[in-house]
């Protein structure tokens, strides 16, 4: 085990897969000479060269569209979107092409591509650059949507995504690149589509993913000092959604809080809560609570922005409500 940052974990995953498989290459805005806007691909251009580390024009539709094409003819492109907010300029190709071409042509085509995109708020970038629109993409059958909350999960899941024969949207969080965690030194992968228990407890279940995991872990620490034992289930993958660990935990605690950074309406919380009601209604001891972003385009002002984003205190308050 080594303690490394999320940035290092993601960078290592790509580096190792590029070393392992010559059909893997990375393309996107500033991934090459610049070294990656968030420095994830620093050193890649010098090591792998311009053929495998491609600086693209600022043209998201053709970044994703051409990655789809290259994948269909046998390569394994990693297409980087500088931020997930720019995915809207490539929406057609993500949800209408990558997600559908295999099915629509009777299974003739295989699209082994990864779309890496950075999301999340809290960095005073204003409303257009601070979004967490993960659920929009998770809505579409045909895509796989992964968003890890720890460096170890990020590395293992990204390696699986690169090896996957399906299109995977891999969502990172801009405020988590410095997050440190233990990562195995040896080679490993983690399966896409498997939720996991990140902290064991018996009083209440928190269901979360990505940045929500950090908030939930902090909340659980504070609540533990009061004797409240919180269990945390990390979804890690939004589609396909693995509810089994959630339901198992809920049957034990009978109480649930769902924590996400995106807006509450039609969100991850809405989906998970519905499934809990559908699959474990008899185990309910309290209404399921959701912690999410206030329904406002995120403002620039730091105080206002933080007020709109979910905080550790919000998670604690929600847990108290269901107890």
């Amino acid at each position: 085990m080594s303690k490394i940052t999320m940035r290092e974990a993601i960078s290592k995953a790509i580096w190792e897969e590029m070393e392992r498989d010559p059909s893997v290459f990375i393309m996107g805005e500033e991934v090459g000479v610049w070294g990656g806007t968030y420095a994830v691909t620093k050193g890649f251009y010098d090591h792998f060269g311009a053929r495998r580390v491609k600086d693209s024009p600022i043209a998201e539709a053709v970044i994703i569209g051409s990655a789809i094409g290259a994948a269909m003819v046998g390569q394994r492109p990693i297409a980087e979107l500088m931020t997930i907010n720019f995915a809207f300029s490539a929406m057609e190709h993500i949800v209408n092409e990558a997600a559908k071409l295999r099915y629509m042509f009777g299974g003739q085509f295989t699209i082994p591509m990864v779309i890496r995109a950075v999301g999340g708020g809290g960095r005073q970038l204003g409303a257009t650059h601070s979004q967490t629109p993960d659920v929009i993409f998770a809505h579409f059958p045909g895509l796989k949507v992964v968003s890890p909350g720890t460096p170890a999960d990020a590395k293992g899941l990204l390696k699986s995504a690169i090896r996957s024969n399906d299109p995977v949207l891999f969502i990172e969080h801009a405020a988590m690149y410095q997050l440190r965690g233990d990562v195995p030194d040896e080679e490993y992968t983690l399966p896409i589509g498997k939720s996991t228990v990140q902290r064991e407890g018996s009083d209440v279940t928190i269901v979360t993913y990505c940045k929500g995991l950090e908030l939930s872990m902090k909340a659980a620490e504070q609540l533990a000092s009061e004797g409240i034992r919180v269990e945390i289930v990390d979804l890690r993958t939004l589609r396909p959604l693995d509810m089994q660990p959630v339901i198992e935990s809920f049957k034990k605690t009978n109480r649930a809080v769902i924590v996400e950074e995106g807006w509450k309406s039609f969100g991850v919380g809405a989906e998970v809560a519905s499934r809990i009601y559908e699959e474990a209604f008899d185990y309910l001891d309290a209404p399921v609570r959701r912690v999410a972003q206030d329904e406002v385009p995120l403002p620039y002002n730091r105080t206002l922005e933080q007020a709109a984003l979910p905080q550790v205190e919000d998670v604690i308050a929600a847990v108290r409500e269901v107890l």
């Binding site: 053929r51 569209g65 051409s66 094409g69 003819v73 046998g74 390569q75 057609e92 092409e97």
Partner: peptide, 20 residues
Amino acid sequence: AIVGAHLPIAAGFALGDQYA
């Protein structure tokens, strides 16, 4: 069926072939 959407994909076929 989406007007123009297959053009970036076509560029991708050629990209894949260039890479190969």
